[in-house]
């Protein structure tokens, strides 16, 4: 029986078709529907999750290839007591979402950026966020929210990417 490590927990995914993309395992088998389907070809970034701290497109990763990988999804960012991360807080306070459908992917990309670079330049933000489409075009607020989150973080990373998806 296959298991995955998701948001710091070992989860049983049963006898599943190993070609199933991680995206659909999260959504259909584990009920973690925060990760979204937008294109299925790694063009839009709505399905972005972290694998060992790095942003990946979950629509492209067959679940059969996932052994000993630490997966973090949007549901795994906030602390157990519900405290939001600085990125999530900034997103709420700056009223970034319009329809909101892409924002889980945007937040995962932004979180990975800030985990490695607590003082990103505009060029850093462009590079880290260019894989995520926002059809409502909330880009200017996303950019500002990343800067606001960086200020809130005050030089502290979210987590050590080498560790197991623990959120600071």
């Amino acid at each position: 029986m296959a298991t995955l490590n998701i948001n710091g927990q070992t989860m049983d995914i049963g006898e599943i078709d190993p070609s199933t993309p991680l995206l659909w395992v999260l959504r259909d088998e584990l009920g973690l529907v925060g990760t979204k389907y937008g294109c299925g070809i790694a063009q839009c970034g709505a399905c972005t999750v972290h694998m060992n701290g790095a942003p990946v497109r979950s629509c492209q990763i067959p679940v059969g290839n996932l052994t000993d990988q630490q997966i973090t999804t949007i549901e795994g960012l906030a602390a157990a007591d519900g405290t939001l991360t600085p990125v999530q807080e900034a997103w709420v306070e700056l009223d970034v979402p319009q329809c909101g459908y892409c924002q889980a992917g945007q937040i995962m990309s932004a979180t990975a950026l800030l985990n490695n670079n607590q003082n990103p330049s505009d060029a850093d933000i462009d590079a880290a966020m260019s894989g995520n489409i926002c059809r409502c075009a909330t880009y200017s607020r996303i950019r500002q929210a990343i800067k606001d989150a960086a200020a809130k973080m005050n030089g502290t990373a979210f987590y050590d990417a080498a560790q197991t998806g623990e959120i600071a």
């Binding site: 529907v33 999804t73 949007i74 549901e75 997103w91 709420v92 009223d95 979402p97 909101g100 924002q103």
Partner: peptide, 19 residues
């Protein structure tokens, strides 16, 4: 200025959308 009432649920990945 008022922020969206669903913002918290959006940034935490709560079920909101059709799918």
């Amino acid at each position: 200025r008022f922020t969206g009432v669903d913002n918290h649920d959006i940034v935490t990945g709560k079920p909101l959308f059709g799918a």
